[in-house]
Design a protein around this nucleic acid. Structure first.
Length: 537
RNA sequence: GCGCCCGUAGCUCAGCUGGAUAGAGCAUCGGAUUUCUAAUCCGACGGUCGCAGGUUCGAAUCCUGCCGGGCGUGCCA
C-alpha cells in the first residue's frame, strides 16, 4: 500500500521525500504487524499478507449479504424517475438505457441505506390518445391476447394514418381528446383507461424479465389536475412574463447559457407544455417525499429541459433545486453509429431483442455444458442473455454513446456480463465440490500463507464498499461494473494456478474461504447492477 | 451563430477527480487442460493521451485557444 506524501509536504512546506521520511519514522512501530518504509516521496506500508487476508475474509464471512452496505442514507429518501415509456407503443431498445441505469441506481442507493422510491412516469397523456380512442371505437377492443402490445402499436399507427387521411376521423379524434381532457367519466375515458392498462400489462412481462419493479407507476395524466396550481405558484413567485404570446420564465440572469432559451410554461393557445407538467411532478414529489435527491434518468438529448427546470426553481429561490439531478446518458446507436431509436422506421422491440439474445445464450449453454437438464438450461440461458444486455449497457460511463453491436453482445467473451457470471458459477462449482467431498469442514485451522499469491484479490475485495458508494454517489453504475471486471480478472488469474481442492486441509480451507468471499462479492455486485448471478452455467 | 458533451493502442473503452513505468477487452500471432467448467488463463504485438499554449515539484486529468465529431437550440415530449 503506497501513501503519496505530496499534500503533506505542501502543508508542512517540505520537500516530499523529506516529509515521507518523517512520516515513516513517526509511524514505524505504532502499526502492529505492519512495516512502514519511505520510498522517495511515498510511504509504503507493507501489511503482513496473512493479517490482510484474515481481516478481510472474516469481515465478508461475518457480514454476508450486508457486506459493502452502509447507513449513510438512513432516514433519507431518494426519488428515481426511470424507464418512463410511452403508452400504446411497445418498449423499444431506446427505453433500455433509462430502465437499466435507473434500476441499478435504485439498488445502489438501497445499499447505502436510503429509502428509494422508483417512479415510472409513463406517457399516458396527449392528443394522440384522442385518435387512439376513436380507432378503438371503430375497430373494437380486439387484440391478439398473446401479444397485446404489438396489437396496440398497429392500432396506434393506423389511428395516426387515419388522422392524416380522413378529416372526419381527425375531427372525431380532436373531440375525443377534448372529452378526455375534461376529466369526465364516460366511454372515452374508459377506452383510454383500457389502453393504459393493456399497455402496462404488456410492459409487466418485460419488466419481470429484467427484474424491475417500480414503487410507483404514475403517468403524466395523474399530474393533470395540478397544472393550474403549479402555474399559479410560479406566477406568484413573480418570475413569469409574456413573450411572443406565450408565458415564459426568463433564465438568463440565473444561467448565462440560457439567456436565449427561456422556459415556456404556457402556449399562446393557453395549453401547457412539457416543462409545466414536469414542474408539477417535481413540486408534487417534493411535497410527498421530501427527497434528499431526485434523480431523472433521462437521455442527454433533454439536457436543456432539465437545466431550465432547475433554473426555474432557482429563480423561485427554492433551495432544494440542488437536490434535483438530471442523470443523463448517451445515445444507443445501431451498427455504424446510425440512429437506432428513431421515431420513424422499424423499431426494435425490446422483447424481441431479449428473445434473440436468450436464444443465442441457450445455444451456447447447450454446447458448453450439455450435462445440464432442459429446465436449468433454459433458466440459465435467460439469466445469461439478459445479463449480457444489461451489463453491456452499464459497463461504460453513462454519458458515452453505446453502439449496439449484436455480434459483440452475443460473443459472451471478454469484458461482458457472462464473463462475470461465469467466474461466479465456477467459484460456486468449487464450493459445491468441496461440500460434496466434505473438505470444507475437515479443517478448522486456516493456513493463510496459502493466500500469499492472492493479495490483488484480497485488496480488491476490500475495495468493494468504496466501489458501491462512489457508484451511487456519482450515479455511475459503470464504476461497479468496471470494479467487477477487475475483480474477476484477478480471481481468474489466481485460481488458474492455485488449486483449491485436494491440498493440505489448512491450505484448502484457506483457499475455500477466499473463494467463498469472492463469490459472495461478485454475486452482490451483479445483483446491484440488475444482473443474475447463476450458480451453474 | 449560441449552449452543452465527447476525443487515450487498428476497434471499443478504463484511468480511483493532480502522483511512481498510461491499463483492459476485441482483433492478430504464439502458448497452457491426466486433476476444482478453456464462456478461462499466460505471453507477444500495439501509445506524439486530437493540436498548441498555460498553471507547478509533477498534467491523460486543471485553465485558455484552436481542430474534429455528437446532442440541443420559444409554443413537441
Amino acid at each position: 500500500m503506497a501513501l503519496p506524501c505530496f499534500l503533506l509536504a505542501k502543508a508542512k512546506k517540505q520537500a516530499p521525500p523529506q516529509a515521507a521520511a518523517e512520516l515513516a519514522n513517526a509511524l514505524s512501530g505504532k502499526l502492529d504487524k505492519m512495516e512502514v518504509r519511505a520510498a522517495g516521496p511515498y510511504v509504503n506500508i507493507t501489511i503482513e499478507r496473512a493479517l490482510l487476508a484474515q481481516t478481510i475474509l472474516a469481515e465478508i464471512a461475518g457480514k454476508g449479504a450486508s457486506y459493502g452496505t452502509s447507513n449513510t442514507g438512513n432516514g433519507r429518501t431518494v426519488v428515481i424517475d426511470y424507464s418512463s415509456p410511452n403508452i400504446a407503443k411497445p418498449m423499444h431498445v431506446g427505453h433500455l438505457r433509462s430502465t437499466i441505469i435507473g434500476a441499478a441506481l435504485v439498488h445502489l442507493h438501497e445499499a447505502l441505506g436510503y429509502k428509494v422510491v422508483g417512479i415510472n412516469h409513463i406517457g399516458d397523456w396527449g392528443s394522440q390518445f384522442g385518435g387512439l380512442v376513436v380507432a378503438l371505437r371503430r375497430r373494437g377492443k380486439t387484440l391478439d391476447e398473446a401479444n397485446p402490445v404489438h396489437g396496440l402499436l398497429e392500432l396506434y399507427q393506423w389511428s395516426k394514418q387515419q388522422v392524416e387521411a380522413d378529416a372526419q376521423f381527425a375531427a372525431e379524434a380532436r373531440e375525443a381528446w377534448r372529452e378526455l381532457e375534461s376529466g369526465r367519466e364516460g366511454e372515452v375515458r374508459e377506452l383510454w383507461r383500457w389502453v393504459t392498462q393493456t399497455s402496462l400489462a404488456g410492459f409487466a412481462k418485460t419488466y419481470k424479465r429484467l427484474g424491475i419493479q417500480h414503487d410507483l407507476v404514475r403517468g403524466e395524466s395523474w399530474y393533470e389536475p395540478l397544472l393550474k396550481e403549479t402555474f399559479e405558484r410560479v406566477a406568484q413567485a413573480g418570475v413569469v412574463e409574456e413573450s411572443q404570446g406565450a408565458l415564459v420564465v426568463m433564465l438568463g440572469m440565473i444561467d448565462k447559457g440560457l439567456k436565449e432559451t427561456p422556459c415556456l410554461l404556457r402556449q399562446s393557445d393557453g395549453t401547457t407544455l412539457y416543462a409545466t407538467r414536469d414542474l408539477a411532478a417535481l413540486f408534487s414529489r417534493h411535497a410527498e417525499f421530501d427527497f434528499a435527491r431526485a434523480l431523472y434518468v433521462v437521455g442527454g438529448e433533454q439536457k436543456l429541459h432539465f437545466r431550465q427546470l432547475k433554473a426555474v426553481l432557482k429563480r423561485m429561490e427554492l433551495a432544494w433545486e440542488a437536490q434535483v439531478e438530471h442523470i443523463d446518458f448517451g445515445l444507443l446507436l445501431g451498427p455504424g453509429r446510425t440512429k437506432l431509436a428513431s421515431r420513424k422506421g422499424p423499431v426494435l422491440v425490446l422483447d424481441d431483442l431479449l428473445d434473440e439474445v436468450v436464444d443465442e445464450a441457450l445455444k451456447v449453454v447447450s454446447e458448453k455444458n450439455p450435462s445440464l437438464d432442459e429446465a436449468t438450461r433454459r433458466l440459465v440461458a435467460e439469466q445469461i442473455g439478459i445479463g449480457a444486455i444489461v451489463f453491456n449497457d452499464l459497463k461504460r460511463e453513462r454519458i458515452k454513446d453505446v453502439e449496439f453491436d449484436k455480434a459483440q453482445i452475443l460473443s459472451f467473451e471478454g469484458e461482458t456480463g457472462p464473463y462475470v457470471q461465469y467466474t461466479h458459477a465456477r467459484l460456486a462449482s468449487i464450493l459445491r465440490k468441496a461440500a460434496e467431498s466434505g473438505e470444507a469442514q475437515s479443517a478448522t485451522q486456516l493456513d493463510l500463507h496459502a493466500l500469499s499469491d492472492a493479495s490483488t484479490v484480497l485488496l480488491g475485495l476490500a475495495r468493494y464498499g468504496t466501489a458501491v458508494r462512489t457508484a451511487a454517489e456519482r450515479c455511475e453504475p459503470s464504476l461497479l461494473a468496471q470494479y467487477l471486471l477487475g475483480l474477476c480478472r484477478d480471481v481468474n488469474a489466481w485460481y488458474a494456478h492455485a488449486r483449491v481442492l485436494g491440498q493440505a486441509p489448512e491450505v484448502t480451507a484457506a483457499r475455500l474461504e477466499l473463494v467463498r468471499a469472492t463469490k459472495c462479492v461478485i454475486g452482490l455486485g451483479l445483483r446491484h447492477l440488475g444482473v443474475a448471478a447463476p450458480e451453474v452455467m
